[in-house]
Structures are given as C-alpha cells and as structure tokens.
Design a protein around this nucleic acid. Structure first.
Length: 556
RNA sequence: GCGCCCGUAGCUCAGAUGGAUAGAGUGCUACCCUCCGAAGGUAGAAGUCGCACGUUCGAAUCGUGUCGGGCGCGCCA
C-alpha cells in the first residue's frame, strides 16, 4: 500500500522550533534528559494555528523567566516559509504561531496526492496484531451488548490497520461447556414437549422462542429422533444452527472475522494440559481441598485461583490462559481483547496465568478494551434486552429497525467505558437531529454541489488555493490537517469514539461553510478553489466514515 | 468489606501527553433560504467540572480522603 509521505505542518514546526531552541540554549544539546519541543493546537483560534508552551516548561530547568526564554527561542528561529509572520509571545510565555497561506492550504494537495491513504501511516510495520471480539457462546442470538462489542472491535481493527498493523479479527467460542449442555437440554425439553411427553424444563434453560424453532427444525431433519434422545446430535445441531444465525447477524452488521477459534480445540490439541503442566513445573501451583490452585497472588491478583476442580475438570480461566498462550505462539506480539465490563474481574487472573508461564509474554498482555452496559430507549421507555428472558430486543432487531450505519455509529460514538443510552427514535430520525445523518449529510451535500457544478473533478486537484482565506476556510483546512493525528490518537488510545467526535466536528465546519459562503459564483478562480477544498473534505469524510464502517452516501 | 468504571450546561456526552476565557449536540429564546439540500446555519441564555485537602508557575486532568451511581468479587462462563 502506498502511504502518504508528506511531512505535516505540525512536525515541521516542531523541528523548526527544536532547532531554534538549541541555537538559543546550546547547553540543552548535551543535557542528559533531552527536552523535545511539542507543538499543540490551541483551543482558541485567536492564539494562532499552533502554539508552543515549552518556555513555561523549561523555566525551572533553565532558571529563567518563561517570557525571556520564549523571546530567545523566537529570536533564534531560522527563516521558514511555514510562518506568516514572526510568532507572538503571549500570556505567561506561550509562543503563538500563525501559518503562511501556502502552509495552511498545503493539506488539500496532500489529500489529493494520498487519496484513500490520506491519514494512514505505516508505523506498525505490518506487525501481526489480533483483535478478539464478540466471542459469544452459541447459545442464542446476538444481543445488543454483542452489537456494541462488534462495532467497537471492528472499528478498532480498522483503526489499527490505518496505523500499519497486519490485523487479524478473531472470534473465540465455547462449543462444549456447561452452557452448551444447558442449550442442548433446553432444545431436548422442547422436543419432548412437542412429542407430548410431560417433562420439566431445565432450571437454567433458555426460554427464547428460537429454542422452539431449533427444535422444530431438528425434528424435521431427524424424524427418527423427534424426541431428541440423541444428545450429541441435538447438541451439534443446535450449536451449528445458532452459529449460523450469529453469522447472519454479523453479516448484516458488516462485521467479518478472519478466524473462529473453538475452545474445544484447546483440549483436543493438548494445549490445556500443556499449560497446566508448565505451571506445575514452574512451581506456581499447589494442591488444597482436593483442587489444584494457581498462585496468582504472586502476580497481582487479589486471591489465588482454582485451576482444576476437585471433580477433575478445569475452571474456565485455564483454557483462557492456554488460548492466550496460543495467540502469543502464533506470532501475535500484540493482542487486543474487547469484552463486556462485567468480565473485568477475570483480567488480573488471566494475565497472572500468562506471567506464571514464564515464556516471555509481557506483563500487559493482552490489552483489554472493556465496554459498559447499554440501555435501549424507545418512545421514552426502556426496552428489554436481557438474554434469558423471552421476547427481548436482539442485535438483528436493532439493525432492522434503525439500519446498520446508525447502529454502528451509535455504538462507537461514546467512550467505551461509559454507559450508553441507545435512543431508537433518535437513531431512526432523518428529519431531526441525528449525529449519523449529520455526518453522512455533509458528504452527500458535497456530492450535490459538485454535481450541480458539473465540471471534471480531476481539474479541481490542481488549482490555486491562495484565495481561501475566510474564517470558515481556515477552520476547515485545519480540521482536515488534523485527520492523520486523530487516527493515530484514536488507535493509540484504542478509542473509536475519537473518530466519531472528529467527524462530527468536520461535518459542522462544512455546514457552517455552506451557509456562509457561495460556491457557484462567477469568479472562476475563487469558485474552483472552494470546490477544491470541499472535494478534499469529501475524501476525508469518506475515509473517516470508512474507519467506522459507515457508508458515505452520495444521495440521501 | 475489597477491586474496577463513572460523576462536567435542564438532558445525552466530548474534553490524549497537566496550559490561556471548560466545549459539542439536544432542549429553550431570537433571527437567516433568488449558489447546493432548512435533514442546514447565525446569535443568546444556561457551569461551585460531586465535595474537601494536597502536588506547582498553572489542575476538569495528577495524589490522598470522602459522598453518590454502576459492575465484579464461585471449585459459574
């Protein structure tokens, strides 16, 4: 993939000021802890395009007043075509920088030169990275919590791809445990019910209507076992049926996986046994009360954990550890696991288990991204989304009702570790304020203006932009220029909502621009410059929406 | 009792590495369509950043304590 190679204004300025700093204070060059100048975006536009606060940070170290330091740095600045004028020193010692017009509009040419790769970089060096998410057990349809997991996980994967990682999406599921047995018993009970046999429904059984549907289909396919006496056959059939349903849900949500990993394979391939043996050999285990325990407290867990129960079976976290060891051994030096926050208690013990293996896995492995609960509202009332109860709202229902785009956007637009209220009426609305449509509309609106103009878009990629000097143009230009850093920031923080917030801002700048300026005017030169700017904006909107997996419609 | 997350405008929420006058959307008030699409825009009112100490040139941000809400603390997954 061809990545954009331009140096953005921010890094160019940082280099320029670093040079000035060393000129002004040569002693810093040999300082044991070198000081790196950072350039930041001031919140207030009156403070210029960029600002440097290094003079304040260095005051103590240099033993001088911040303003004196700032003056010395500015005086030592080499000549540069980046700057519109000599930077101003403001307040206690901020250096405020205003870009030259050429530097300010350069981002448009960069967008055209990079196309779809604008904002991407290859810093990841195509290192293997895994994002594991959803990982629902095949005991029912995906619910809205899985939906949030799917949207966040898939967006994280897309985000990390923009940073040059070779991302693999993985779905891990338990196809053999107690819950699967419970599923089998539930289907069996419905089969017996159909056959007119009076049998009690299992205590913790699954009550959803889908259990009846599976029973119906089973009876149809295996008429000779209409009572479901062949437990293995019922189990296999049910798991396959539900996995199939979940795949349809995910497909409708535009989420795909590179690999599905079965928990049962950890046993059949001996990985669980190998893990336990290794932990025993390392002296990290002990016997007590007829069970085998892991000394997880040695690695920061708040109590030791049972690995092998007194009945000889393993607790869930042993295969979990084996699974993560397996990820590591498959060459995923970085792994991210997206989980519901109700599982946070298991993090410490899985990481402890991995450390106790002593096979070189770093202590923070894997990275966890947790998402909080969702409340769904419709017509001002809370909608039931619980799993066990029958008649609840599933992910598929939600997608059918509000559409894939709005669902994905709503699931990622909040910080994942804050609770989310999903307002169905807001998500569906196209006539009132709706964050998804606000952004998509910006894209469609640009398409509409360009269509009305009717010229060849290619000619817009090489026009004189010197006339773009209005407040709206300046703000739009700087927002475009922020895109690469926004992706990088969001990927570093593993925080998809940063992208959604950015897109909302970009769309707002665009709508303001529309209402403030005229596009199809007689002044040919200004017209082309403005059209060029919105063409570049369209590209960035499209790229940003693509990271969220949301369509960029040309018409709405 | 212990651990994790959250507490910012009436409501829903942003505020990365501590920075200048704390932001957006929604709701409310008043305006704005003879370039494209009013699904939009402009302006205004609205805040003890839960509370109290502390760290420093500077704290919504870091530390300690405290109050309120959610979740987890099993030889369940």
């Amino acid at each position: 993939m061809i990545m954009s190679t331009f140096i953005d204004n921010k890094s160019a300025l940082a280099a320029l000021f670093q040079q000035a700093l060393l000129r002004a204070f040569p002693a810093l060059a040999t300082d044991p802890s070198p000081f790196a100048i950072e350039v930041e975006r001031p919140k207030n536009p009156e403070h210029g395009h960029f600002a440097v606060n290094s003079a304040l940070q260095l005051a103590k170290k240099l033993g001088k007043k911040p303003r004196e330091i700032a003056e010395a740095i500015v005086a030592a600045l080499p000549a540069s075509d980046l700057l519109a004028a000599t930077p101003e020193i403001a307040g206690p010692g901020f250096i405020n920088i205003r870009l030259s017009a050429a530097a300010e509009t350069r981002v448009v040419a960069n967008v055209f030169a990079s196309g779809d790769t604008f904002g991407r970089n290859d810093a990841g060096g195509q290192k293997k990275l895994m994002v594991e998410f959803v990982s629902a057990n095949p005991t029912g349809p995906l619910h809205v919590g899985h939906g949030r997991a799917a949207a966040i996980g898939d967006t994280l994967a897309r985000l990390l791809e923009t940073q040059g990682y070779a991302v693999s999406r993985e779905f891990y599921y338990n196809d053999a445990g107690a819950q699967i047995n419970n599923l089998m018993l539930s289907v069996q009970a419905r089969l017996r019910e159909k056959a007119g046999i009076d049998a009690p429904f299992p205590e913790d059984g699954y009550h959803g209507d889908y259990i009846r549907e599976i029973a119906d289909r089973y009876a149809q396919q295996f008429p000779h076992d209409a009572k479901g006496e062949n437990a293995d056959a019922v189990r296999q059939f049910s798991v396959a049926a539900l996995r199939h349903e979940q795949d349809l849900d995910l497909k409708a949500f535009d989420v795909f996986f590179d690999n599905y990993y079965l928990e049962s394979s950890l046993y059949t391939e001996g990985l669980v046994d190998r893990t336990v043996q290794r932990l025993e050999q390392n002296g990290k285990t002990y016997q007590q009360d007829g069970a085998l325990w892991l000394r997880s407290t040695d690695y920061g867990d708040d109590k030791d954990r049972v690995m092998r129960k007194s009945d000889g079976s393993y607790t869930y976290f042993v295969p979990d550890v084996a699974y993560h060891v397996n990820k590591w051994e498959r060459g995923f030096t970085r792994a991210i696991v997206e989980l519901g926050a109700d599982h946070h208690g298991s993090l410490a013990r899985v990481r402890a288990g991995l450390q106790a293996m002593e096979i070189g896995i770093p202590s923070g492995y894997p990275d966890y991204v947790l998402h909080q609960m969702i409340t769904v509202m419709r017509a001002g009332e809370e909608v039931k989304i619980g799993k066990r109860a029958g008649g609840y709202l599933t992910l598929r229902d939600l997608i059918d009702e509000v559409g894939c785009d709005a669902t994905r956007y709503f699931f990622v637009m909040r910080k994942s570790d804050s609770q989310l209220t999903f307002d169905i009426d807001l998500a569906r609305s196209k006539s009132e304020e709706n964050p998804v449509y606000y952004v998509q509309y910006a894209h469609a609106r640009i398409c509409s203006v360009l269509t009305q103009w009717g010229g060849d878009e290619a000619t817009l990629k090489n026009v004189d932009l010197a006339l773009l000097t209005s407040k709206y143009e300046s703000e739009l230009l700087r927002t475009l220029a922020d895109f690469p850093e926004t992706l990088n920031h969001a990927a570093r923080e593993l925080a998809p909502h940063i992208v959604a917030t950015y897109l909302a801002e970009l769309a707002a700048r665009l709508h303001s621009y529309y209402n403030a300026e005229r596009f199809l005017l007689d002044d040919e030169k200004l017209k082309l410059a403005r059209l060029s700017l919105i063409l570049a904006t369209r590209q960035v909107l499209k790229s940003g929406l693509a990271v969220l997996g949301v369509a960029a419609p040309e018409k709405m």
